[in-house]
């Protein structure tokens, strides 16, 4: 990863992901990613995909006993997605389309 922040933004484009998912697909430790996500969060590039509303949690889901995400330790960020600013940034560094 020569540009880790851009790679994270790329991984979040179109698909909101959780920290463990990012960690798995990028092959970086969650600890290392957490700081980067905090930077992107502070810069307004990512936001929580689902606003935490108390009742929106795994506890109400009938499939939680089968779910891989339930019960894992993801205290800070749940589901992250790009903000408009993040999308714009990503579009800027994207390769030129073939005319």
């Amino acid at each position: 990863m020569t540009s880790p922040l851009a790679t994270i933004l790329g991984s979040l484009a179109g698909t909101p992901r959780t920290l463990p998912e990012l960690s798995r697909s990028l092959g970086s430790s969650p600890q290392a990613l957490e700081g980067m996500l905090q930077t992107l969060y502070a810069g307004g590039y990512v936001q929580e995909a689902v606003q935490n509303q108390g009742d929106c949690s795994c506890s109400g889901c009938s499939l939680k006993s089968m779910c891989r995400n339930f019960g894992d330790e993801t205290p800070e960020f749940h589901l992250l997605r790009l903000t408009e600013r993040g999308e714009k940034y990503l579009n800027r560094i994207a390769p030129q389309p073939v005319p």
């Binding site: 540009s3 922040l5 502070a42 810069g43």
Partner: peptide
């Protein structure tokens, strides 16, 4: 010029740290 200093600086640090 298309550069967000916050991201450019952090990007360079994270890349170097990695």
């Amino acid at each position: 010029a298309g550069l967000d200093p916050l991201i450019e600086i952090a990007e360079a640090r994270y890349a170097r740290a990695g």
